[in-house]
Each structure stands twice: as C-alpha cells, then as structure tokens.
Deep mutational scan, measured.
Amino acid sequence: MSRESDVEAQQSHGSSACSQPHGSVTQSQGSSSQSQGISSSSTSTMPNSSQSSHSSSGTLSSLETVSTQELYSIPEDQEPEDQEPEEPTPAPWARLWALQDGFANLECVNDNYWFGRDKSCEYCFDEPLLKRTDKYRTYSKKHFRIFREVGPKNSYIAYIEDHSGNGTFVNTELVGKGKRRPLNNNSEIALSLSRNKVFVFFDLTVDDQSVYPKALRDEYIMSKTLGSGACGEVKLAFERKTCKKVAIKIISKRKFAIGSAREADPALNVETEIEILKKLNHPCIIKIKNFFDAEDYYIVLELMEGGELFDKVVGNKRLKEATCKLYFYQMLLAVQYLHENGIIHRDLKPENVLLSSQEEDCLIKITDFGHSKILGETSLMRTLCGTPTYLAPEVLVSVGTAGYNRAVDCWSLGVILFICLSGYPPFSEHRTQVSLKDQITSGKYNFIPEVWAEVSEKALDLVKKLLVVDPKARFTTEEALRHPWLQDEDMKRKFQDLLSEENESTALPQVL
C-alpha cells in the first residue's frame, strides 16, 4: 500500500538533515546492470571481512566470479597478432551492500547512478522477487541517484539526491524531493519508509565518522582530508542543518603536550582565546566558526575552494607581477588587521594563504593565525623552527619566545613576496656552502639577476625593505602599504570589485 501522500506532506515541511535544493538533472540513458558494476546475484546478508577486503582492492568479489566451465583457453599460436591488451577495470570509489532480497550489490565505478523502476536507470528495480513485494509499487520510476562531484583539492564528494514520490531516507532522515545531501561511510539508505532499509553505503575513500566526538558529529558530517601540516590535519565537512561546506582543523593534544602547556602557563585558556579569535572579522582572514574541545581540538573554519598559494608557486613557478601585487596587498591588509588586534601570526607561508577560486584574479585569505593562542608560545615555536624557511632572523637566534615582536610577520611576508615574484625561495638548504640558518640570520638571500630583470624596481625595493635583518629597521605593514609599488588604483579597484562580488555589503578597509 502506498504512503505517498503521508511522505509528500513530510517532504513539504523539509528536513533537518544536511540537504539543499538542487537544479534539474539530465537523465542518464539506460545500460545493462552488469556493465555498471552490479553483481549478477542479489543478497540479503552483509559481507564478511574477506569479501570486503577483496573488493576494496579493486579485484572481483566472490559475488562477481564466473564459473571456469564457461571459459576456455586460447593457445598462444592462435592469439590474433593485432589484439590489444584489455584496459584494467577501474577501482570502485564506493560500494552499496544490499540489505534485502531482490536488490543486488553495487560497485560504484562510474560517477553517476540512477536507481528506480524505469529501465533507463543504471540500477533498475526489475528483479522478479522484488516485483512480488508489497513495497515495489511505492518505488518511483526514478527514485534517487548517487553521484560524486569534484571538491576541494581535486578530491571527490559523494551525494545522494531524492527524486521520489514516497521519499528517500539516509539514516532515517528524509532527504526531500529535489534535494541532495552528502553521503558518508556506513550510511543506511531506506526507500519509501524510513524503516525500509535497502542499502548500506560504503565510501571507500573516507574514514568512519565514529572516531570523532559526538558533539562534533551532531553538527557536522566529516568527509575527506584536505591537507595536513606540522600543526594538524584539515578535513572537509558539512553543516548538517545547511549542507554548507566547512573546513575542520584537528590539532592533536598529545603531539603538542597541550596539557603540560596549560600547567606551565595557567593563564592559557584555550576556550577564552578561541572566543576572541571567533570575533575577528576581516575579508582577508579565514573566519573561525566553531570550536570543540575533546581528546583533540577541532576548529571549524570557513572553507576556501581555490587551494593554497603554495600550489601556484611550487615547482619554480612565478606569478605575474600584477597578480603578485593583488595578492600581496590583501596579505598586508590581513596581517595589519591581526597586528591591530594584538595577534602575531608567526607562521606566514604560502600554505597559509588560501585562494577563493581558481581564477588568477581572486580574493585571498590568511589562515592559521591563532596557533600560539591554542598551542602555547613554546610549543608552537619548537614546531616552526623545524622548517625555518620563512622564519625571521630574530626568531632563530632567540631562546624560547623572548626578543621578537610583530616584525617577524613582515619578514615572512618579504619571503613570500620574493617567491611569488621570482619563482624560487630566497633562502634554501640546497645552497650547501652556507647553512639555512646562517643565510637567514645574515640576510644573504639568493639573488639571480636574469630572473629579477623581469621584475620592476619598485617591487624589488619593497622586497629589500622587508628582508632587513634588524627588526627595528624592517618595514611595518603600514609602511609597506604606503610603498610606491602598491599605489596602484587599478589594483585596488579590482580588489574592491572582487569584494563586491563576494558580498555587496563588504567595504574596502581604510588604508593610510
């Protein structure tokens, strides 16, 4: 008996699950189920560990084997000379395990699969056993689809999209007709009724959600790893209520002995410091949205989908001078704002400069500016000194954290500008005749005249004003913003236009 009217009423009120309206889709043409990776026989039982391990490696599972009696060998002398080797079968990115008779397991190899009674669906509900069930008529011709799209860092995100009359449910929550939600590992998919569980979705590319604290899981769906560094790992996640993407940084307390840091400095109150950081608001710094204190720290951040500045300059790639100017102007505005709010970044580098898009002209935002507030000064500097390429001379020669101030950030900005303009770092371990530390503390950077011949004198002058060993003589952010190279009204107008595109209400910060 159909429950279409009941569920449609529920759909009209929406769902609290991570779902959002989605535009129309072009329906895929039908194809045989076997060619799409559906096993030839149905099963109602969950797999054992041996079955799972075989399939996850990209080899055929026991459900897909063919009797050897149906095959015969071709003698080598009868092999056609022009026969080309077969292409290897792509490894599946996800697996659906059937929970009921009449449904088959599915190895997801393609990027898009339609499910329903219509014969054009890649996964067609046409098993005779299924057709005899009382629920068969409640399934729509095109009930739902599972697909994946390219996300940040060229990774993939799996989604389920509801197109049914009676509802598609993920972990008992209604997706909603015309809406989608991301699928995470071990999600249970039910059709027409929330208790009519048909599939379990296994994402073969992500970790299980159960490793994360419950308070975090209640608000966010964790997904793929976006990156990792000395101070922690960053994962893509989704807000459950809105389906908006965020980035979540995970900082290990054990790695940084944060408990010991608190004992050594009783004034170090991470929760208080995070609340201060959350109040920071500038178009060129990453917004801190939320914070969870569990076995590790979880910092929920605004997501930038254009990648890191590092990706644009790695491998001796240089940027156009006009692009360097647009990016560097924004970096200076961001660091100036942090300094005005009493925050020294201490870890400025291309990896911590994020881009809003893949376009050459785009907004940038500074991230990882609050680590000293979370990890403690000593722990952070011990970590950073392991990779000193961007560290100021006074940091390398000081004991502990004494003896330096916000000028350290201006040195790091000078190193970043040098790399963007030239395509190579000013200080490098590859210069074996002088140690990296000695290069930095003496201010002897690697200047290649033929490379810098293409760079304007004004740009080079600003680099020199920032890479000054004496912090008292080094340019401040205010002085850098007043430098002739940055007195470019076309560049500032472009920045204002980019801000307006992102948010019509965002105004250009005042600069002296």
Rank of each mutant, 00 (worst) to 15 (best):
R3V: 10
R3Y: 05
R3T: 12
E4D: 06
D6M: 08
V7S: 05
V7R: 05
A9P: 06
A9L: 03
A9G: 11
Q10G: 12
Q10M: 05
S12P: 09
S12V: 11
H13I: 09
S15H: 05
S15Y: 10
A17D: 05
C18S: 13
S24D: 13
V25G: 12
V25I: 09
Q27T: 09
Q27W: 08
Q27G: 07
Q29Y: 07
Q29T: 07
S32L: 09
S32W: 11
S33N: 12
G37N: 04
T45K: 07
N48W: 11
N48H: 10
S49M: 07
S49E: 12
Q51W: 06
S53Y: 06
H54F: 09
S55F: 08
S55Y: 05
S55K: 08
S57T: 11
S57G: 13
S57H: 00
G58S: 07
T59W: 09
L60M: 11
E64L: 01
E64I: 04
T65K: 02
S67L: 04
T68F: 04
E70A: 04
Y72E: 07
S73A: 05
D77C: 03
D77L: 08
E81Q: 15
Q83S: 04
Q83L: 09
E86G: 11
E86A: 09
E86W: 08
E87Q: 12
E87F: 11
T89C: 15
P90Y: 06
A91T: 06
P92V: 03
L96D: 01
A98T: 05
A98E: 02
L99V: 11
Q100L: 15
Q100Y: 15
Q100T: 11
D101E: 10
D101P: 09
G102W: 13
F103I: 15
F103Q: 04
N105G: 11
L106S: 14
E107L: 15
E107V: 15
C108G: 03
C108Y: 03
C108N: 07
V109E: 12
D111Y: 12
D111C: 14
D111T: 08
D111I: 11
N112A: 09
Y113R: 01
F115W: 02
G116E: 01
R117D: 01
D118T: 11
K119Y: 13
K119C: 10
K119R: 10
S120W: 14
S120L: 13
E122K: 15
Y123T: 08
F125M: 13
P128C: 05
L130R: 12
L130E: 03
L130P: 06
R132P: 05
T133S: 08
D134P: 12
K135M: 14
K135V: 14
Y136I: 04
Y136W: 08
K141I: 06
K142F: 08
K142P: 00
F144T: 00
R145S: 12
R145G: 13
V150S: 14
K153T: 14
N154Y: 14
N154T: 02
N154G: 05
S155W: 10
I157W: 15
A158N: 05
D162P: 09
H163N: 13
H163D: 13
S164Q: 06
G165T: 15
G165W: 05
N166Q: 04
N166E: 02
T168S: 12
F169L: 12
F169Q: 01
F169E: 02
F169A: 01
V170S: 14
T172E: 02
E173F: 13
E173V: 10
L174F: 12
L174H: 08
G176M: 13
G176A: 09
K177D: 14
G178Q: 15
K179L: 08
K179W: 08
L183E: 13
L183V: 14
N184I: 14
N186Q: 03
N186F: 06
N186L: 02
S187E: 02
S187A: 04
L193V: 03
S194L: 15
N196H: 03
K197S: 03
F199C: 08
F199M: 14
F202C: 04
D203I: 09
D203G: 14
Q209G: 03
Q209D: 10
S210T: 04
S210E: 05
V211Q: 14
P213T: 04
K214V: 02
L216C: 05
L216W: 11
R217L: 08
D218W: 14
D218N: 15
E219Y: 00
Y220K: 03
Y220C: 09
Y220G: 02
M222T: 10
M222Y: 13
K224C: 00
K224N: 06
T225W: 05
T225K: 15
L226E: 14
L226S: 02
G229P: 00
A230S: 04
C231I: 09
C231V: 08
G232P: 00
V234G: 05
F238L: 08
F238W: 04
E239D: 06
T242C: 06
T242W: 01
T242M: 02
C243A: 02
K245T: 07
V246F: 11
V246E: 09
V246L: 04
V246I: 07
I250F: 05
I251T: 00
I251K: 06
K253T: 02
R254N: 01
I258L: 12
A261Q: 01
A261V: 13
E263S: 06
A264G: 02
D265N: 15
P266T: 02
A267N: 02
N269F: 15
V270S: 14
V270I: 13
V270M: 12
E271D: 07
T272P: 15
